[in-house]
Design a protein around this nucleic acid. Structure first.
Lengths: 225, 225
DNA sequence: TTTATTAGTTGCATGATGCAACTAAGTGAC
DNA sequence: GTCACTTAGTTGCATCATGCAACTAATAAA
């Protein structure tokens, strides 16, 4: 009576590389679409996964080697058309990860594809990516989301360009700094500056403790605290 | 290999009655929790439902007699603890419906419970209701959502009190009218006014065509166009 | 020491938001 | 009919947020 359904979890892993937003894709190692690039994902294992978010974290850990990024539920996509095997359901998440973490993940299979250039992907993964981009851009305009694309420490000019890449338009310097100040999520690192080529060095900042996430790279002690 | 999962759909049907926000509850007619008030919901039927949204619409139609309200996906809740039968997954939606439509739905089983007073419900339905309230209130502060709690026609003072009930605080009259003007979703109904007790009558408005939804009551021709 | 370059701040113009006080249009009391 | 009362809707102004231009600050290279 209680019809059971094939349920999977898919993750839109977003990162910055070469100053543009990329989505992480992996070659599928099972049919359907074996060998084709697709979002990291897989079936939910009720005996193993506490809930769908834990399942999404497992996908990232096993398939992309990434520990605990910013992870948020995007939505659930369902229907007969999305999988050639029949009616299915995918609970989708998106993750934000600093470029350095993805580069250091030592999983050679990961392909970073320009996030805005996704035209077709297996299942309805292209639609899921587009939904993730819309969500991230919407939230970026009024929240602190983009900081999770930066490393542990960053300067305000660096963070500003991250916002500008996401929003696709230049931001006023003063307004940006005022907003960051109001959000009260950053703290300057005492005495730490980042020197550039030949100009005044910029103050380094980090997320205040309650907003921090420990990413795999940090866990391995590669980045300074 | 592809472990299948028990999937249900639950709907948080919100409406206004006696100037306060209510959530629609129904007595369950199956175990577990037979006879206990819970959200309208049920198993997804892949052979019948195009997708989860169609399933949610079916729940509303069959269990609450309501045709096509504002319906939006809220999120997916999952895990071992939420259902005594074991690991399960619920794709949850919320619907906004004018009070008159619910009252006319002719399903005597519907109980309208104060939305903010929900302390315990079967499964994790209380948590789902709280998530819906948070979402609706967040969106209400910057969007046109609350109009879907009004009937087909309404005056601006009426709409303003709907916003005030949702947000729980008074709104400045001028600011409110400016905002409605900017949103460009309403149009005055030419020559139509609503007279009150002993004062100037208020202009009647309706949603502009592209934003309208045909609700069951409208379909039956009870409300004027 | 001068120049170039980026970091960060200050002051002001412009626009959005909120309040008080106004006018408008109806009913009922007398 | 006129006046009082009530709610609808508008106007003008004060206050706050946002954005721009121009400033100072700090470094390295010439």
């Amino acid at each position: 009576m209680s019809s059971k359904i094939i349920c999977s979890v898919d993750v839109v892993l977003l990162t910055l590389s070469n100053s543009s937003l990329k989505v992480a894709l992996l070659e599928r190692d099972h049919d359907p679409f074996r060998g084709v690039l697709a979002l990291p994902g897989g079936f939910i294992h009720p005996d193993e996964d506490q809930d769908t978010e834990a399942a999404a974290a497992r996908m990232l850990r096993d398939k992309a080697g990434i520990q605990s990024p910013y992870l948020e539920q995007l939505g659930t996509f369902s229907g007969r058309g999305r999988d050639p095997r029949g009616w299915s359901l995918s609970v989708s998440y998106y993750a934000l990860v600093p470029g350095a973490v993805v580069q250091a993940s030592e999983r050679p299979g990961i392909v970073l594809h320009p996030a805005d250039d996704v035209d077709w992907l297996p299942f309805d993964h292209a639609q899921i990516v587009r939904a993730a981009l819309t969500r991230v851009r919407d939230k970026s305009s009024y929240s602190s989301l983009p900081v999770y694309l930066c490393g542990d420490t960053f300067t305000l000019p660096e963070l500003q360009t991250v916002y500008e890449i996401l929003l696709g338009e230049p931001i006023n310097k003063v307004s940006f700094r005022r907003k960051m100040d109001e959000l009260e999520i950053l703290e300057p690192i005492p005495g730490a500056q980042k020197a550039g080529k030949a100009h005044r060095p910029a103050q380094l900042y980090r997320l205040r403790k309650q907003f921090r996430r420990k990413l795999s790279l940090t866990d391995r002690g590669i980045n300074p605290g």
